[in-house]
Every structure is written in structure tokens, then in C-alpha cells.
Amino acid sequence: MLSIKNLKASIEDGTQILKGIDLEVRPGEVHAIMGPNGSGKSTLSKVIMGHPAYKVDDGSVELDGKNLLEMEISERANSGLFISTQYPTEIPGVNNVDFLKMALNSKRAYLGMPEMSDDDFKNLCEEKMALLEMDERYRERGVNDGMSGGEKKRNEILQMAILDPKVSFLDETDSGLDIDALRIVANGINHIMAPEKAVILVTHYQRLLDYIKPTYVHVLRHGKIILSGGPELALKLEEQGYDWIEEK
């Protein structure tokens, strides 16, 4: 499904942030990526999506055998990749619902499907908003405009639910969420997850993984995955931190 091989990427001044990432994500899997601040976790999602602030130095990223690195950003998204950044961008003046509809119909156009009718879109929106326990105010607001951290994260999952991607890369989706919001967002992700899809979660804490059971847990440090394991690895990291890995 998603295959990342020897991915190296740097920022404008030449500093290399990713120093050879290898990651295989298969359908139905949930991968958790953990690691200290500044290890390259957020950079990884942006590089895969093609953020212009990063330059790919080496390696490959394929989604279902297609080379993502050769695609335009919108094409990567329409091929089935979704990323949610740690701090979702605010776009005042672009209405949330108009934006969602534009994004969904862009994907449908890319896939050769007709535009979704207003009624069908309204029903889809209502269904997914109910799943995430979102109130009607979201419809009237600008994209992430003036929303709290928790509201933004919920809005990101709403987008994921509507766009129905194959692979979702969620960067610290649990940050800024209170206990109830964490449960709602996690339930939303579990609901969207399906055997033919995959999720990559970046998190610092076990608490998200109490709700979303990972297939694999990886530790990213200094731009490389230095350790991988099962769900038990997250528990150990929660207890002992990261220093023991270097000691090892």
C-alpha cells in the first residue's frame, strides 16, 4: 500500500531532517510513530505530501505502486493520501462546507466520477458530523477559523471521514483534546478505518493508543526509524522514555 524507502529530505538551508526512512504500511494496519521532539515526525508527513519547504534528497514513496514524489500535491491527495498536521492552518473567508465540497468533488473529478449532488453532500456531511458529535456552527465557520485546538483536530477528522483516503497520516491528533474529545476523535478514526485502509499516527502518549490499537509502533529519532515493535513498545516508551534505546 504505502511504501517508503530510504527517504531523505532537507530544508532550504541544506539541513537534512529525514536521513533514510524505511516504512512499509499494508492495508488494515495502524502504525504509531513516536519519538522525541525534533526527531522528524512532522516533517515526514509533510515530505510525503510534497510541502514546498522540503526537498527530497533521495529515496522513494509509493502508494499502491505509484510514485507519489512525481505527483502534484493535489494528485497525491486525490490518489488516496491524507495528512493532518499538528497545527491545522486557519483559512478565514473560506467556508468550511464549501471547502469540503470542493475537496470532495475535486477527488471525484480525479477519479472520473460526477460531482456529488447538494442533497447527497448534505446527508454525507450530517452523517459524519454526527459521528464526531460536531454541532451546526461548523458549517458557518471559515476553515479552522478561530477554532480551539480541539475543534481543529475534530475538523481534520471530519475532512478525513468525508474524503475517505486510503492512507491517513495523523500528526499529534490527540494534542489539545480533553478526555471526552479524545474519545470522540478516536472513535471517529476507528469508525473510518477499514480493512482496505491504513492509518499512521504520530503521538507522544499512550493514551491515544488506548483507543486506537496499533499494529506496529516505531521510534523515530534523528531522522531515522531506530526501533520498531508491537503495541507493547508504546507502553515501554511511556514508562521509560527514549534514553534506554540509545543506551541499547
Binding site: H51, S74, T89
Partner: peptide, 9 residues
């Protein structure tokens, strides 16, 4: 980036 990363041309 945000808009195009949601598939909008």
C-alpha cells in the same frame, strides 16, 4: 498547501 493537500487543484 493546506487546500491543495486536500486535493483541490
Amino acid at each position: 498547501f493546506y487546500l491543495v493537500s486536500r486535493g483541490i487543484p
